[in-house]
Amino acid sequence: MWQNDQYPENVTKLLLSSCQDSTWKQYSSNFKKWTEYCTINNLPVWRPSINSILEFLAKLHDDGLGYTSINSMRSCLSTMIGKVDGQNIGTHPVVCRLLKGVANSRPPKPKYENTWDSNLVLQFCKNLGENSRLNIIDLSHKLVALLALTTGQRVQTLSAISVPNINFKSGSCEIVIYDKLKSSKPGSTTILSLPNFLDINLCVVKTLKCYLAKTKEIRKTDKLFISTRTPYGAVSRDTLSRWLKIVLSKSGININVYSGHSFRHSSTSKAHERGVCVDSIYKAAGWCNNSKVFAKHYRRPIINTHEFANAVLNG
């Protein structure tokens, strides 16, 4: 994405490793808009003036974009271009002031005004009956739904679970994730701790054990979730999101409003409603202690503690 021959190949490779592929994909789309703007206005792409940057961001605002999109563009330009007038674009005082103006004139809004009751999905899972009698499709949908609810994690986290890193203990199950996740720091691991639950039809640990047993002879990958038909390889995040939407639909929840990611909203909101302390919710869902994301975007009218999961399951 950087200017051709701007850096040696080995340097460029390391620079690309500094962000997730999804981030570069977003930056690529953003930077294309910047280059088109520069072409139309006969401006230099790589050595712009601060006024050019400000006018471009202001145009995005005039075109109807909100704070989140414009802030993403700021991050993109800061990463790709770096400094203007001796200061980094992302922290340039005037750019920061402009973004504050964007936030005041068009404040970022949460995706959902409210969230669905997790009891709807839990009742659907319970009504499916005994795990041993479920086909691979229903069992897959049930497991991903229970994991999403009892951990509050993103689909990215669930898709990263590997069978060798699942450890069953007396009364619980611990899952260690070594993959780099959106919220993880370099070299860190994510640990999901799942408790046994008395209701066997809602116990995520028992559902996980049954799923592993049913897929043992057919799986072609170490990743936990596999396709429901040959060649039984690892499924993508998009597939897991689609499975979650199927569960929502079958639970009577409007999928034209709520996506698979809304499981994160529902579970964290339910835990908060049941009196789980904010620190436990943050720790469960992978937010840092001083994060404002939950209060702003998720609270609506891994895990090294079982408090979070039990609160959701107990309804």
Rank of each mutant, 00 (worst) to 15 (best):
S241F: 04
K216P: 01
K206A: 14
I226S: 02
S251V: 03
K182Q: 08
G252N: 01
T189A: 08
A271N: 05
A271L: 08
A213T: 12
L202S: 08
T239R: 11
L248F: 00
I218E: 04
V247C: 11
N165V: 02
H265E: 03
C210L: 05
L192N: 03
A271S: 12
I177D: 09
H261W: 06
R229V: 09
G187Y: 09
T230R: 13
A271W: 02
S236R: 09
Y258A: 05
L181H: 07
K270L: 14
L198F: 12
L212G: 08
N167K: 14
K214M: 12
L198R: 14
K250F: 02
N256M: 07
Y211M: 04
L181P: 02
L208R: 08
N167A: 11
W243V: 05
Y232Q: 01
Y232S: 02
S266A: 15
V247L: 00
L212N: 03
S172F: 13
K223Q: 10
D179F: 02
S184Q: 11
N165S: 14
K220A: 10
L194Q: 04
R274G: 00
H261S: 09
R264E: 03
D238T: 10
S183P: 00
V257W: 03
K250I: 00
T239K: 12
G233N: 10
H272W: 14
K214S: 03
K206T: 14
T215H: 06
G187S: 10
T221H: 04
K216R: 15
T239G: 06
V176H: 02
I200W: 01
K185D: 14
T221D: 13
I246A: 08
C203G: 07
G252C: 04
N256W: 01
P195I: 09
S259C: 10
I175V: 15
I253M: 10
G252S: 04
T230I: 11
